[in-house]
């Protein structure tokens, strides 16, 4: 739930950014970082649909490494389709 996920900004309209990560696309609000200069091609850290900060690309990649391991271990650890759906 508090899982911050780095996403790549694809396009921006007002405070809405269309973002992508691991093939999943999402609309993300830039409302909380409206003072920050964010452009398509930048990475943002997304908490519950809101960007809370801009990220350097290396930081985004390294964070995904940690998340990948987490998702993998969670999948192995339990057959919990509910949980998988929750995490999408």
């Amino acid at each position: 739930m508090c899982l911050g996920v780095p996403m790549l900004v694809q396009s921006i309209e007002g405070f809405q950014a269309h973002c992508e990560a691991k093939g999943i696309e999402r609309d993300v609000s830039l409302f909380m970082i409206q003072d920050v200069d964010v452009k398509p091609g930048d990475y943002v850290l997304v908490h519950v649909g809101y960007a809370i900060q801009k990220l350097e690309p290396e930081e985004a990649a390294a964070t995904w490494q940690v998340l990948d391991e987490l998702f993998e271990s969670n999948e192995l650890e339990e057959a919990d389709p509910e949980g998988a759906a929750r995490r999408e």
Binding site: C2, M32, V48, Y50
Partner: peptide, 11 residues
């Protein structure tokens, strides 16, 4: 939630 969640909720 903690601050990181409640800030988006507030927004």
């Amino acid at each position: 939630g903690f601050e990181t969640t409640m800030a988006p909720v507030a927004a």
